[in-house]
């Protein structure tokens, strides 16, 4: 069950190879973080799930069914999609943005709006903001709306395309916390694309680090990857040698204090 990439590859008509021979399974209710630099094929892979991109080789399956055998439009409506910054419909009020997919699938507008207002609250927004247009919200608020919109049709799967990439670090942290809390309650199957390794480690149950051309550099849980980077590329990518990653303990007055590579204290070992 869940999502399965079975030996998929994508070569664009101009000859660009985005992905080659990628295999991976995302179990239900788990979060897969695809991380890599631009050109690593991470977005291409995510977009194969809702057929925004179709693989040139291999198969993508949802609950054992090949997505190519499903109706494109229905498939997309059944999957929640959180776009990058700027993906809200600028000409629709926030509440109508959130209600988009339910309205597309035939829910009466009034009922869809009521549900949308409740969802806004759920993602930590004042429902009064529902009357505004997206451009009247801050970047962080807009991405909360995007998350609410993706959840509106209560999909089993969420696709997130660098959802928090364009907001400042403090706001990003808040958005990540919110998502973790929602995920704890809702247990969606999530595919998240990010170029931020810290975000991948925070949000992903499984993390796949990709090199250029969609080749897997390393896959595993954040712990496994940090504990044993597969090679120098991964070591470099996750910043294993970075001062704030290489933590050690020192003994001060009988207590184990954790310090980073520069010797600055970051906490106490209980």
């Amino acid at each position: 069950m869940g999502i399965e990439f079975r030996d998929v590859g994508k070569t664009y008509p101009d000859g660009t190879v985005a992905v080659t021979g990628f295999s991976c399974t995302v179990p239900s209710h788990r979060t897969l973080a695809l991380v890599g630099t631009s050109g690593s094929g991470k977005t291409t892979l995510m977009r194969m799930v809702n057929r925004m991109v179709e693989p040139t080789t291999g198969t993508v399956l949802i609950d054992e069914r090949d997505v190519l055998g499903l109706d494109k439009v229905e498939l997309r409506r059944s999957i929640g999609y959180v776009p990058q910054a700027g993906g809200l419909l600028p000409h629709r009020r926030v509440v109508d943005n959130v209600a988009t997919v339910p309205v597309l699938t035939g829910t009466p507008r009034g009922a869809a709006r009521d549900a949308a207002l409740a969802l806004l609250e759920r993602v930590g927004l004042d429902p009064a903001l529902g009357r505004r247009y997206p451009a009247q919200l801050s970047g962080g608020q807009q991405q909360r709306v995007a998350v609410a919109r993706a959840l509106a049709a209560d999909p089993n799967i969420l696709l997130m395309d660098e959802p928090f990439g364009a907001v400042d670090p403090i706001v990003r942290r808040g958005l990540q916390d919110q998502l973790l809390q929602l995920q704890a309650e809702l247990g969606k199957t999530i595919v998240l694309v990010t170029h931020d390794i810290d975000e991948a480690f925070r949000l992903g149950d499984e993390v796949v680090i990709l090199r250029t051309g969609g080749i897997v550099a390393q896959a595993g849980t954040p712990k496994e990857i940090v504990a044993a980077p597969a090679d120098d590329f991964v070591r470099d990518f996750i910043g294993a040698d970075r001062a704030d990653r290489a933590l050690r303990t020192v003994d001060i007055d009988g207590r184990s204090v954790v310090v980073d590579g520069d010797g600055r204290p970051v906490g106490v070992l209980e």
Partner: peptide
Amino acid sequence: VDGRVREAAEAMGYS
């Protein structure tokens, strides 16, 4: 028309 908006709309399942 902003390409990001179109793309997000398509991904949400607009015909």
